[in-house]
Amino acid sequence: MSAGQAAPAESAAHPALPSGRYGSAGRQRSKRWRRWLFVVIALLVGATIAVVAYQNLGDGPISAERVAFKELPGNAIQITIQVTRDEPDNAGVCIVRARDKTGAESGRREVLVRAGEKNGTLTTVIKSVGRPVTADVYGCSYDVPRYLSSS
């Protein structure tokens, strides 16, 4: 086509296409349900992943965080933790640990959280096999071992 010639007149809304080459217009409608099915399945899978992640990664019914720690003589470290729980009438247990300068665990202790307040502070001493440089909370649970329970 040169600059001075006009293009053949075609309808801008529906250009004439050979039906044998491109199929009929009804075929495009049949693909819409597949698209909607894919969207629904993707939403269901996404919702399932979100629920599982919330249950596994969300805050548990009992949790603790380190408030302070202080190195003591004789390869020991003192840790103070703040415990938060949703069932203050039940006893719980928290595991605290000491770490050496490489980050490896060098001591561990289970601490009984007696029934009582919803939020409480506990202080304990962890013995270490080497010089500890920090202490942290490993985790907490309501599943108290028999040797820790007072009853």
Rank of each mutant, 00 (worst) to 15 (best):
M1P: 01
M1H: 07
G4T: 15
A6T: 11
A9T: 10
E10C: 09
A13W: 09
A13S: 08
H14Q: 14
A16M: 02
L17H: 10
P18F: 02
R21D: 10
G23Q: 00
G23Y: 05
A25C: 05
A25L: 13
G26Q: 14
G26E: 11
R29T: 14
S30I: 09
K31S: 10
K31D: 12
K31H: 14
R35T: 05
R35F: 08
V39Q: 13
V39M: 09
V40E: 04
I41D: 07
A42R: 11
L43A: 15
L44F: 15
L44Y: 11
V45N: 13
A47S: 11
A50D: 09
V51P: 11
V52Y: 05
Y54P: 01
G58C: 01
G58V: 07
D59R: 15
G60P: 05
P61Q: 08
E71R: 04
E71H: 07
E71A: 00
L72F: 04
P73M: 08
P73H: 09
A76W: 10
I79R: 00
I79C: 05
T80Y: 06
T80S: 06
T80G: 08
I81M: 10
I81F: 06
Q82K: 06
T84H: 06
T84I: 12
E87N: 09
E87Q: 12
D89G: 06
V93D: 03
V93P: 02
C94R: 00
R97Q: 06
R99L: 02
A104S: 13
G107E: 02
R108T: 00
R108L: 01
R109V: 01
R109E: 02
E110F: 15
E110I: 04
V111N: 05
R114G: 09
R114P: 00
E117W: 13
E117T: 11
K118V: 07
N119F: 03
G120P: 06
G120H: 11
G120A: 15
T121R: 14
L122K: 01
T123M: 10
T124Y: 03
V129L: 08
G130T: 09
P132D: 05
P132E: 04
V133N: 06
A135F: 08
C140I: 00
Y142M: 02
V144D: 00
V144N: 03
Y147F: 14
Y147P: 03
S149N: 07
S149Q: 15
S150N: 13
